[in-house]
């Protein structure tokens, strides 16, 4: 019956052809196009890891792993040596200082915003935190170098013009919004029934916050701390400007120190010729940095999954 040429069949065939053509043109091609686009993100990650590993491999052909984990760093000397420990030391110290600023202030701000504040103050403070989070890090770097360091120098006369204390503090300030908003989210998601229960037993607001809400939100809060540490480790411009480029291995925070990120920035903006050991050392340091932040993120994911309290 399909083969008979009747007006009905003609129309039916036309519709079929039309649908078939459309399928060919768009519904078959578009998913492939989008798939290719989506693959770019995978290629980027693979690319990052491959670049870091191959170039770091070149580096380790020339520099032994023992030298890499030593305390002597002099990449531009006549007899260059590439010990990464001074850089790790600078990174850890500056991140520690940052966390000593960010955790207390961030957590108390989160407790205030989530438990104590009226909706009006909240709607006033939240945008300010968002603005702080949106300021480019280079601006914080300028702030650390031209404002915080001179003030600290008056308080601590032995402070050097470039030191690790001032960028550490400013980095902490930069991270406050992140700690505050992530912890606040965690505390907000604690069900109200728990709070009501504690109030019913005669608790004050503070007791409800510290003894009920905080323990219940602990997984989210801890993972916000770990993410903040990861952010501090990867932060570049503040330390590049304000902590200088001294490659000495020291624990004195009033001295200049270089972080891993600072090393990468200083060494490329100098003239690291392609193919030299110095050039490849960038990728070895970059690989260490990548591993550090990657581990931190895994820990954060683990904490928020493992210790999540379900209600």
């Amino acid at each position: 019956m399909d083969n008979q040429i009747t007006p009905q069949n003609q129309i039916r065939n036309q519709i079929r052809n039309h649908i078939g053509r459309k399928k060919n043109n768009s519904d078959r091609l578009m998913p492939r196009f989008f798939l290719i686009m989506a693959s770019v993100s995978i290629i980027t990650t693979v690319g990052i890891v491959l670049t870091l590993i191959t170039d770091a491999f070149h580096f380790f052909k020339e520099v032994s792993i023992f030298e890499f984990f030593s305390t002597k760093l002099a990449p531009l000397g006549a007899n260059p040596s590439f010990g990464i420990l001074p850089l790790i030391n600078g990174t850890v110290l500056s991140s520690l200082i940052a966390m000593m600023v960010a955790i207390p202030i961030g957590l108390t701000s989160a407790m205030y915003l989530s438990e104590f504040s009226s909706p009006k103050t909240r709607s006033f403070i939240k945008p300010i935190l968002e603005v702080l989070a949106g300021i480019p890090t280079i601006v914080y770097g300028f702030f650390a170098y031209s404002f915080v360091t001179p003030i600290l120098m008056k308080l601590i006369p032995t402070l050097e013009a470039k030191n690790v204390l001032s960028p550490g503090i400013v980095m902490g300030i930069m991270i406050i919004p992140m700690v505050a908003s992530l912890s606040e989210d965690a505390m907000k998601s604690v069900p109200n029934a728990l709070r009501e229960g504690a109030y019913g037993l005669g608790s004050t607001k503070l007791e409800v916050t510290t003894k009920v809400v905080l323990p219940a939100a602990m997984s989210g809060i801890m993972s916000s701390f770990v993410l903040a540490i990861s952010r501090a480790i990867g932060e570049t411009m503040i330390v590049a400007i304000a902590s200088g480029s001294s490659k000495n291995f020291t624990f004195d925070i009033t001295h200049s120190m270089q972080t891993m990120t600072g090393y990468i920035v200083e060494f490329t903006s100098g003239d690291a010729g392609s193919g030299t050991t110095g050039y490849y050392s960038l990728y070895a340091v970059g690989l260490m940095l990548f591993i550090f932040t990657f581990i931190m993120n895994l820990i954060a994911q683990y904490i928020s999954k493992r210790f999540r309290e379900e209600y």
Partner: peptide
């Protein structure tokens, strides 16, 4: 991948 990319320090993208 995307969630990991978001947490890679920006200086590594420079490399």
């Amino acid at each position: 991948n995307i969630s990991n990319l978001a947490s890679v320090p920006s200086v590594i993208f420079g490399l």
